[in-house]
């Protein structure tokens, strides 16, 4: 991988340059939350943030979008406009989440809507420091080696810029007077020290590597009933989870005219009716069954199908579930008495 150095004071210039290459999005502070919003320049963004409300999935599988338009004569497929979107300031966990979505939507059968959005998306990562809700160290997604076009690690006076794709290299090459390849021994030492101090900042840890086994062995455990009783079936866990991708499809008719649209929208397996079939049979009528599906699928079953679990440790479920159902409380309940010793073992 090619690596460059970008002086900190040149970062705004680089962003100006990028704004000519596509629609620019970055982390914008709105009240006390951050979210990826369209921006024009550096000053609109705040790179010192923990987590945005939604991850990169909002660019890839937007919460609601039209897939078809139709009238009484014909059906037309609607694909997203082929404009380049450049997203800045993406943390490693969210890049890992895109890698997981890529597997699901592109590796087996290609989803044409996802594919066109993905092809037009440039990911510019940015280093971060954890808060108490970050568990990416446990999930092994605190560091990212690929899946981005560029990744910027913020050091004292400059950024180390990692190039992850030919698109990324092209962006650097066409603004090359901002960058240098002169990475000194001191720079390397500074980077390593930064990595070490970052990894020592994590406050929360879960025994992630034992998760598939403990879920399997606890399949019939009362733990799920306790969470099922608490769960509000609000679906916010799925909305904010950067890897939750289930969608529903609905047709809408314009009443005044003989035409309509077919829309896809994010769905959640915790919502009532998720497994309801025509005729009225519901395969998962109660909250216990649905919350169990959510966590077993994310933490265990995904491995069988896509080679890895679908939790990237971003801490969004920890931050947003109104009744404290999240990967941390789920693991505490499942591991129960051995939780503390397992946490230690997982970190060795």
């Amino acid at each position: 991988m090619k690596t460059y150095k970008l002086p900190k004071d040149k970062f705004p210039n680089f962003i100006n340059f990028l704004s000519n290459k596509g629609n620019l999005y970055g982390p914008v502070k709105q009240k006390d939350q951050h979210s990826f919003e369209q921006v024009n320049e550096y000053s609109e963004m705040d790179f010192n943030y923990q987590r945005t409300i939604l991850g990169i999935k909002k660019f890839l599988t937007p919460p609601r979008y039209i897939t078809q338009k139709f009238d009484s004569e014909s059906v037309e497929d609607i694909f997203p406009q082929s404009e380049t979107n450049i997203v800045l300031g993406i943390h490693p966990c969210d890049i890992h989440a895109v890698k997981i979505l890529d597997k699901l939507f592109l590796d087996n059968i290609k989803d044409p809507y996802y594919e066109s959005r993905r092809n037009n998306l440039i990911l510019v990562g940015h280093s971060c420091l954890p808060d108490k809700n970050c568990i990416c160290q446990s999930t092994g997604t605190d560091i990212v080696e690929d899946g981005f076009d560029l990744f910027l690690t913020e050091l004292e006076n400059h950024y180390l810029v990692w190039v992850g794709s030919s698109k990324g290299l092209y962006l650097i090459a066409s603004a090359e007077n901002l960058f240098s390849e002169d990475i000194t021994k001191e720079d390397i030492a500074e980077y390593i020290r930064w990595q070490k101090s970052r990894s020592e900042m994590f406050e929360t840890s879960i025994p992630f590597k034992y998760m598939p086994d403990i879920i399997h062995l606890n399949y019939d455990s009362d733990v799920w009933d306790e969470f099922g009783d608490k769960c509000l079936s609000c679906g916010v866990c799925s909305l904010v989870c950067p890897t939750c991708n289930c969608f529903n499809v609905e047709d809408k008719i314009v009443m005044s005219a003989d035409k309509g649209v077919r829309e896809r929208m994010l769905d959640s397996c915790t919502l009532p009716g998720y497994s309801l079939v025509a005729g009225g049979h519901d395969f998962r009528p109660n909250r216990t069954q649905r919350i169990k599906l959510y966590y077993t699928h994310k933490l265990k079953e995904y491995i069988g199908k896509w080679g890895q679990p679908a939790c990237v440790g971003c801490g969004r479920c920890v931050s947003y579930c109104p009744v404290d159902i999240n990967v941390v409380t789920i693991s505490q309940a499942l591991f129960s008495d051995v939780y503390e010793e397992m946490v230690c073992d997982n970190n060795e």
Binding site: I109, N245, C246, F247, D267, S275, V277, E301, G304, K305
Partner: peptide
């Protein structure tokens, strides 16, 4: 078996059972 399905090709998630998709 029968399950709720929206896509038929392993994308929409509704027919997931354990580590498999009923549609695939």
């Amino acid at each position: 078996l029968e399950r709720r399905m929206k896509c038929g090709q392993g994308h929409c998630g509704h027919c997931a059972i354990g580590g498999v998709y009923t549609c695939l």
